Amino acid sequence: MIINNLKLIREKKKISQSELAALLEVSRQTINGIEKNKYNASLQLALKIAYYLNTPLEDIFQWQ
């Protein structure tokens, strides 16, 4: 199981879903879906999320 901390980290950094989506060149709905565990981010997208949030990938998506 993967624990998804994207919403928590994004909100801590005061970045909206729309802002993050624009940086990543995806839709806001994609970010929303990832945060609600409706969609799994591809490895490429997960790495981009970590880069733009300046946060280690394993802090955003944790295996349990």
Rank of each mutant, 00 (worst) to 15 (best):
I49K: 00
E35Y: 02
L43Y: 14
E11Q: 10
G33W: 10
N54V: 06
Y52H: 13
N37G: 15
Q62G: 11
E11C: 12
L57E: 02
K7A: 12
L45R: 00
S18C: 14
E58L: 09
Y52L: 12
L53H: 07
L43C: 15
N54I: 04
K48E: 05
L47N: 12
A50Q: 04
L8A: 15
E19R: 12
E58Q: 12
S27G: 06
N40E: 11
L47K: 14
L20R: 00
S27H: 06
E25I: 06
L24W: 02
Q62M: 10
R28C: 14
K13T: 06
I9C: 08
L47E: 14
L20N: 00
E58A: 11
I9V: 11
A22G: 11
I15F: 08
V26P: 01
R28P: 15
R10T: 03
I49P: 00
I34S: 01
L20I: 03
R28T: 15
A50I: 03
E19P: 02
N4M: 06
S16K: 09
L57Y: 06
L43F: 14
D59Q: 13
A41G: 05
K48M: 07
L45G: 00
T55F: 03
V26D: 00
L53F: 07
K12N: 11
L43H: 12
A22E: 13
N4W: 08
Q64V: 11
F61V: 02
N37S: 09
A21N: 02
A46K: 11
K14V: 05
S27D: 13
I2N: 07
L45P: 00
A46M: 14
Y52C: 13
L24H: 00
E35P: 01
E11P: 01
G33R: 14
I34G: 00
E58W: 08
Y51T: 08
K48Y: 03
E11D: 08
G33S: 14
K48T: 04
A22N: 11
N4E: 02
Y51A: 09
I49A: 04
Q29L: 09
Y39W: 11
W63G: 05
I9A: 06
D59P: 03
N37I: 02
Q62F: 09
K38M: 12
L24F: 00
T55P: 02
W63I: 07
K13V: 08
E35L: 03
K38W: 10
W63Q: 06
K12C: 12
A21L: 03
A41M: 14
L24Q: 01
